[in-house]
Design a protein around this nucleic acid. Structure first.
Lengths: 211, 211
DNA sequence: CGAGGCATTGAACTATGTCAAACCATGTGG
DNA sequence: CCACATGGTTTGACATAGTTCAATGCCTCG
């Protein structure tokens, strides 16, 4: 983006604090801008007919949410809720839309980003439909480690409730709990309070590969 | 796109016939262009660790396949196979990439398209993880009707093998077959040879909604 | 201390996958 | 024309993964 554009965006953006559990936007709303995550993590989920949420993506620092809706000029198809206390900045759509029309490099950048999201979504589809719950659980933990890291003691930085985990994996809470305790017993995971740590990454990988 | 650009693309494109069952491209390959479906239907699928294909999308006349890979400059993440005899035209990536860099309206158009695909993918994720096999089967038939239409006698135009259907729905062939015969017995579907027709659309919708 | 919310466990139930056998249309070579 | 291999389809019986419901424990906050 040109300096001028950058300045315009930077002038018009506003930051906002969102407490854990609070929504940033909800399915069906119309957004007049996008949000950029400054700090914290947000879950992007969708309510299904049976009343359960499915978490489709977790967005953290540096990620932009709501672009799909702004780009397509449609209402949002996902609900964004803070999983930890967050700081987000809001960028109104006017600036974005006009830049999209005039600056091909910016548009291309957004396009590449969306291409990446789409690929990830395809992978999720395959995982959801072809892998069993244990394998999906294993995937989820490795994903959490890869994307959010571990603390000094080897526990996952991002702490999710069992319910959130089951909404990522697409299973009943009880199944999720049982599998965590099974993994713990087998030495694949360790826990401390709500914190979960990966103890045997290789075993989890083997599980996913079907060994 | 400007006339000039359009001319360039139109000059460089070549058309190709693909017989039913033949691949257009395979997962992992590098594409040097995109394909536009002139006629027929292609299934886009991905092989999972357990050896089963998952069909992620069905592309028909007018749709472009392979853009994600060209835009992101990565190898393809899906395999495209013809489900019926096809005519596709190939558009080499040089023209596309240069246009992406120079023509923001074209880029934006592509971006909007991808935004739409992404939304659909999110929907599929939710369906896959939150709905049971019967509901997913019902969805699949309604999808086939909506996207590919029916013939004069009310049978779905696109005829898929039971295996393809089960790869769309993400289930075992036998489960798929059993559900088709159950739906038939209940009067939701009708069949004639391999052709399947929707007899009671409302009932299928109710099933999906969970009634 | 008591209430509410999350986590855990057990037991019963159901949906779905798996395996094996039978079936049917189709094409092939004798 | 028949015998037979072939590949997709169908059905039955069975095993298992996963869900659901109900009860209990456990922690935190007022």
């Amino acid at each position: 983006m040109s300096k001028e554009e950058l300045k315009r965006v930077s002038d018009s953006k506003t930051t906002r604090l969102v407490k854990k559990g609070e929504p940033i936007f909800k399915e069906g709303e119309k957004l007049d801008g996008v949000f950029c995550v400054r700090d914290g993590v947000s879950k992007l989920s969708k309510l299904s007919a049976n009343g359960k949420d499915q978490i489709v993506k977790l967005a953290s620092k540096g990620e932009v949410i709501g672009q799909r809706s702004v780009v397509a000029e449609e209402s949002v198809n996902l609900t964004a809720v803070a999983v930890s206390d967050m700081e987000v900045c809001f960028i109104p759509k006017e600036g974005i839309v006009s830049t999209l029309h005039t600056n091909p490099n910016f548009t291309l950048e957004v396009l590449r980003h969306m291409a990446h999201d789409l690929k990830e979504a395809d992978d999720v589809i395959v995982n959801m439909s072809q892998k069993n719950v244990k394998q999906r659980m294993a995937e989820a933990f490795l994903y959490l480690k890869k994307n959010f890291g571990e603390d000094e003691e080897g526990f996952l930085r991002l702490v999710l409730s069992r319910e959130d985990i089951s909404n990522v994996v697409g299973t009943a809470i009880e199944s999720c709990i049982r599998i965590i305790s099974e993994f713990k017993k087998k030495g694949y995971l360790k826990t401390s309070g709500k914190k979960i740590g990966i103890a045997d990454e290789k075993a989890l990988n083997n599980l996913i590969e079907g060994f």
